[in-house]
């Protein structure tokens, strides 16, 4: 006959006073992604947005369904290349502004496209 070592279903003492207050665990997806169908992750390789906290190696959460506003951080397509910059206006013209004094603002052409709006930055330390 085998005798179990522990009867671990029997609990002694008082029940935990926190038991009734247990909620779901924190879910980063729910916190960071409002529109899953239109949200994409992209990885940054350059340093043009360093002063906005976007470092080489950062991962951006990009929502394509959002409309970009003045000062939105956006992923844009310039001359068939992706880039992340801040969208802004200069004398009524649309520009992409880097957040690094090393780089110059880029004037948006009609053929350029705003691909999506950056909603969060993931940077691992």
């Amino acid at each position: 006959m085998k005798i179990p070592l522990f009867f671990n279903t029997i609990k002694a003492g008082f029940p935990s006073p926190a038991e009734d207050f247990i909620e779901d665990k924190l879910n980063l997806n729910h916190f960071l992604i409002e529109h899953p169908a239109s949200t994409f992750f992209v990885k940054v390789s350059g340093d043009s947005m360093i002063n906005a906290g976007i470092l080489p190696g950062s991962i951006l959460i990009v929502d394509r369904s959002l409309d970009p506003h003045n000062n939105s951080t956006v992923v844009a397509v310039i001359d068939s290349e992706f880039t992340v910059k801040r969208l802004g206006y200069l004398k009524n013209e649309r520009y992409l502004f880097p957040e690094n004094p090393k780089y110059k603002p880029i004037k948006l052409k009609d053929s350029d496209e705003i691909w999506g709006v950056v909603t969060a930055i993931i940077t691992q330390l």
Binding site: F40, F41, V44, L60, T83
Partner: peptide
């Protein structure tokens, strides 16, 4: 691009 962390779109 959308299913593997190691294969994400890389942008400048």
């Amino acid at each position: 691009y959308t299913t593997k962390w190691s294969e994400l779109l890389t942008i400048n």
